[in-house]
Design a protein around this nucleic acid. Structure first.
Lengths: 135, 135
DNA sequence: TATTGTTATACTCTATAACTATA
DNA sequence: TATAGTTATAGAGTATAACAATA
């Protein structure tokens, strides 16, 4: 699993390199475009990254004018993260590139196999969320 | 996949902690016990770790008397890595602990599902080995 | 008191270059 | 000239503590 993930990560980073993105900045951009107004702490939780480490990731996206940090009037401690038009544009280009990456990684894999793998991964992930509810 | 791997790695490291092993030292020990006489460069390739970084891993196992570095008479540049009795003993204990870890991670997963996932991972790994032979 | 974002920092992993002793 | 192991070091990624502003 580690080896497979290493291969996927290496190919994904190569795929995103021409766009100036890494796996984590890509993931952050996608989440912000899909959930405009997201707060940094929510994004950190969604990415499973420490808030402290997310700061530099958001800095990077903001510096490139892909997103903006907007003060939340109702809670002046927090920032709402919103994509800029440039951010939405890069998002579209990145999604297209990642489709190619996925096709490469899953090269000719049967649809049912993909679904079985995705379900197994989700199950392993969720297995760590305490609780003992089956599923 | 990243998230699932993070969960697996965290649980595996917790599992191995009481034995004083990490994922990589466990993997190295297993490979040395299963392939006594292995050379460092071969082990580095098998683990997909730089030779330079393997040195400290082997140092750690040697310092704990789990393995020995034995000069190869036919090539005095190389070291043959062999497990000590203590290394073989810890190997057995670690294997037992890892069986529990796997049971936790795959909790109740159907045998066929496991096989499908393992095959998919192998395929993704091998997909990066150049060549264009189909599979 | 607690939380959001931030800074500083340390620790681990990983990658690269250069060295030694052999071949 | 090339290879096995080693050292030193630099760069990522990640984790923790402490702070200011705000709740």
């Amino acid at each position: 699993m580690k080896r497979a993930f290493n291969v996927v990560q290496a190919d994904l980073n190569q795929t995103l390199k021409p766009l100036g993105l890494r796996m984590v900045t890509y993931s952050a951009l996608v989440l912000i475009v899909d959930n405009p107004g997201l707060r940094q702490s929510q994004l950190a939780a969604a990415l499973d990254v420490e808030r402290a480490n997310l700061v530099v990731i958001v800095d990077e996206l903001e510096r490139r004018d892909l997103i903006s940090r907007d003060r939340v009037p109702s809670d002046r401690r927090a920032y709402a993260l919103n994509p800029t038009p440039a951010g939405r544009h890069l998002y579209e280009r990145a999604l297209e590139a990642v489709r190619g990456h996925e096709a490469r990684m899953l090269n000719g894999m049967e649809e049912e196999t993909k679904q079985v793998v995705i379900r197994a991964m989700s199950r392993i992930r969720r297995g760590s969320e305490g609780g003992s509810r089956g599923g």
